[in-house]
Design a protein around this nucleic acid. Structure first.
Length: 266
DNA sequence: CGATTTTGACCCGCGC
DNA sequence: GCGCGGGTCAAAATCG
């Protein structure tokens, strides 16, 4: 029952609310390891134009995110490498709608990383094309969670989007996997970074903060935003992510992105 | 008319 | 073994 990563993150976010006050939008990254071929902390990649001190032991994300030009702030969560669930396979029971997928292989979940962003639109533009393949109600939340998959063939990157229940102005976006192809959009700014992205570094575009004051006459998701501002690259920092304010080791939270006990706790 | 979204059925692991 | 909850499929409906 406790697998509400989003909520957990909210919690974190909530703790660092001061952050929210300082920045138009914020995000929380959640990833776990396994791709740390880069010596850089994600913060550095975050804003390549200016060097930021490594986040390694930052207790408060805010410190590290003292960038005027970078509207995004982040914290790390964790990812579970646990074999979560796969799809179907096995034998058709008595139903007719079974898909004969004879792959008994457990789909190992790829590391996931998530971040929260203040935004009115649920689906943030990130330079890739996605096809929605599902939507489910989130427990303890009135907002649903949407599941997207990268439309590029052979690219199995998945993305999950849900609005925070405790803070409806924020959306939690969780990415799973890495793109193995360049972004279909984007002018041409993948010079040095593309290499990193291609090798194993998830690259995520920071959202611009002037998101909302664009216009909001309807509730359509998918909104084009000015690709210009900042680029943020996420790097897995082996361990020692900065979440919330506590030291946050990798033994509790890093297991499964967040057990959630948001409202049930008390 | 092809690509994408919608949406209920189905799957699966887990806790009881 | 059943029910719950998260996740996925796929047919029908929509969109562009």
């Amino acid at each position: 029952m406790e697998r509400n990563e989003g909520l957990q993150m909210e919690e974190v976010l909530g703790n660092s609310s001061f952050l929210a006050n300082s920045f138009p939008l914020q995000s929380i990254f959640d990833f776990s390891n396994e791709g740390d071929k880069f010596p850089l902390g994600f913060m550095e990649l975050f804003d390549i134009s200016q060097q930021v001190p490594p986040p390694l032991k930052t207790e408060s994300p805010a410190d590290a995110f003292n960038l005027p030009a970078t509207p995004n702030s982040s914290s790390v969560s964790s990812a579970s490498s646990e074999a979560v669930n796969d799809r179907k396979d096995g034998q058709p029971k008595t139903k007719k709608q079974l898909k004969p997928k004879k792959t008994n292989q457990k789909r190992q979940r790829e590391p996931r990383f998530a971040f929260m962003t203040k935004s009115e639109v649920d689906h943030l533009e990130d330079g890739y094309r996605w096809r929605k393949y599902g939507q489910k109600a989130v427990k303890n939340s009135t907002f649903p969670r949407s599941y997207y998959r990268c439309t590029s063939t052979s690219c199995n990157v998945k993305k999950r989007v849900e609005r925070s229940f405790t803070d409806p102005t924020t959306v939690v976006t969780t990415y799973e996997g890495q793109h193995n192809h360049p972004s279909p959009l984007l002018p041409r700014l993948n010079s040095g970074i593309s290499a990193g992205a291609a090798s194993g570094l998830p690259l995520q575009r920071a959202q611009s903060h002037f998101y909302h004051h664009h216009h909001h006459h309807h509730r359509h998701q998918q909104q084009q935003l000015p690709f210009s501002s900042t680029w943020s690259a996420l790097n897995f920092g082996h361990n020692g992510p900065t979440v919330g304010h506590s030291s946050f080791k990798d033994h509790g939270l890093l297991q499964d992105i967040i057990p959630s006990h948001m409202l049930k706790e008390e």
